[in-house]
Design a protein around this nucleic acid. Structure first.
Lengths: 353, 353
DNA sequence: ATGAAAGCGCTAACAG
DNA sequence: CTGTTAGCGCTTTCAT
């Protein structure tokens, strides 16, 4: 049986309040007493009971992170950064995955299991704008992503339209005119796909390039397999294109794979750019140019906003904030613009064998 | 303020015990009463307070998963499967990352923050055999990985030696004799690296191929960058090789990238096989043959063992179990043995442009 | 079938 | 500076 405050107090010959004071670094404790208590603590291997503490204080020291799936690199990397930032605030992270299902997302929002956290960072993929009011929960919540805007909670998101436009402009700047898009979603007014396609169209329009619907490949999910399948369809359709803008990196890597398999040279025949800048893209063959949407900054900001909300005393809560983080294009080989930085060897002797 | 049992009891005109009975599906409640209570619950939007429940019952319904890093695909995919399995048991997963630091790992083991969980699935990378006794904690713990054996806790691990041997034998079966290894660790008696190198050597010995230390590339971490750097060194060293066994996939993908950059054809000049079978390997160019060490099975077994431990009543605890899961080699293009399954198009018209 | 009451281990007034 | 005491919201004997 684990030791309690009582046990320590008893052993040290003081009251539990004093022990509590020592444990919580309350300033006004005589050094002598503190010492005595500390010894008892060490002797018994006392560890405060987090649950009891939490019940009493109303804080658990844990925040929840709700994601579609961890095996999608973007989310895994995001989770890593959320955990790192949470740790700086003394918080631990409970991860719940929804598989991008609207029902699961809604269920998690009202799940009592999550009552064990002080607040949630919520990244939906199934819910849409119409579900905005469901976000008005009675605990601190920070929304991520592009599914819902104008909700009553803090929201951290990226500049999808601008970033997609910049990516497309880069391809145009390379002289490409037949730019395919992989990963569009059918009938979706909002969400990452719609916004990024919007940016793509904006760029075309600004450059006076007509939009050709035949160049748009639709998928449901954004996994590698979907990108591969889309590209296959695109190629089979016989449509001509000289560049590809993939709406996320996983998708794009799958597409690029099929592209090469089909005999296209990247970037010579087809220039390729992705979105997310996951680590893998740096090591693909060829390395994939991508848009870093500001993932690290999103994670940091989300945790900070959540911590602020959690810390809000009963008073008047601050107005919900919408934070847009900055993006950046990371040029690599797939657009022929990258340095060979990653894998260049100072004296790479191709070593014929 | 959230409603409590009292509020509900008051509104329904019953005692809190009755409400509790309803909430917990206690059988002996009159349907009529149950109904009345349910209405009060709905009306108030009552949600049981997980913390209070946890304090009273001694169970939080959360388990901890301690990993080196989520952005390593192997661990992200493992985490995904642990979460899925935990959910089947009604458990939620708290993830803590250690960055593979021994100090952090040891700290987490005794961290009161983790007292908020009912048990831990612990995957160390920094701790070693000498730290085995530190695992004798007073809460349910399931060990993963190959850093520590014979500890006093349940342990789920893979057949490293056999799997590595099988991988090497596959390369030998392809007629390769100069097989390089990427990712070995210096001075390590135990751990994944040592075991897998062992399997590699066993295979060589069994085939009568002399072991050439010049073919072993050492790294510290197993990230893509390390594999890339190692391969660069190997190539620069001028040593001749016709196959590569990478001790994990990330590493191997980095190595394969550099290999191709340096002008080697895979698998013609150099056959490549990895270890872990992460999703990405299916979409690499060429797709990477890999050893699936039984990740899904490890996740499932670990959760099940932990759940069993958590459920153990005060009585005599079961003896610690060591579970070895089965592995499987997944042949793909990098060894010239793979089907084109992933990306083959039934009618792939290479579409000259 | 339901109610009363005693804590789980801790924090936070409030005394002293 | 330290002790006493009252709960946080819930589960759980023990009665009734």
């Amino acid at each position: 049986m684990a030791a309690t405050l009582h046990d320590v107090a008893h052993l040290a010959g003081v009251s539990i309040k004093t022990v509590s004071n020592v444990v919580n670094d309350y300033p006004h404790v005589r050094p002598e007493t503190r010492h005595k208590v500390q010894r008892a603590i060490d002797e018994l291997g006392y560890q405060p009971n987090a649950t009891a503490r939490s019940l009493r204080s109303g804080r658990s020291g844990a925040i929840g992170l709700v994601l579609p799936e961890l095996s999608l690199s973007y989310f895994a990397e995001l989770a890593d950064e959320v955990i790192a930032e949470a740790e700086k605030h003394g918080l631990v992270v409970l991860i719940e995955k929804t598989g991008a299902s609207r029902e699961r997302e809604i269920a998690v929002l009202s799940s009592p299991r999550m009552r064990l956290t002080d607040g949630l960072i919520f990244s939906p993929l199934g819910m849409g704008q119409d579900d905005a009011e469901l976000l008005a929960v009675d605990y601190p919540l920070v929304l991520l992503g592009e599914r819902i805007f104008g909700s009553p909670v803090d929201h951290v998101t990226m500049r999808n339209v601008e970033a997609a436009r910049a990516a497309t402009e880069m391809l145009i700047g390379l002289g490409r005119r037949r730019i395919a898009v992989v990963g569009a979603h059918v009938d979706e007014g909002v969400g990452s796909a719609a916004l990024r396609v919007q940016g793509y169209q904006d760029a075309l329009a600004a450059a006076g390039i007509p939009f050709d619907p035949a160049l748009v490949a639709y998928t449901t999910l954004w996994h590698r397999a979907n990108g591969a399948a889309s590209m296959r369809e695109l190629i089979d359709s016989g449509v001509h294109f000289d560049a590809v803008f993939g709406l996320n990196d996983a998708l794009t890597l799958g597409a690029m794979r099929v592209l090469q398999e089909a005999g296209f040279r990247v970037p010579d025949d087809v220039a390729v750019i992705g979105f997310d800048d996951i680590e893998e893209s740096r090591y693909a063959v060829p390395s994939l140019t991508s848009v870093d949407p500001g993932r690290a900054s999103i994670a940091r900001t989300a945790v900070q906003l959540l911590v602020r909300r959690i810390g809000e005393q009963g008073g008047r809560p601050a107005d919900p904030q919408e934070v847009l983080v900055d993006f950046e294009i990371v040029p690599r080989e797939s657009t022929g613009t990258g340095s060979l930085a990653v894998a260049s060897s100072s004296a790479a002797t191709p070593a014929a064998r």
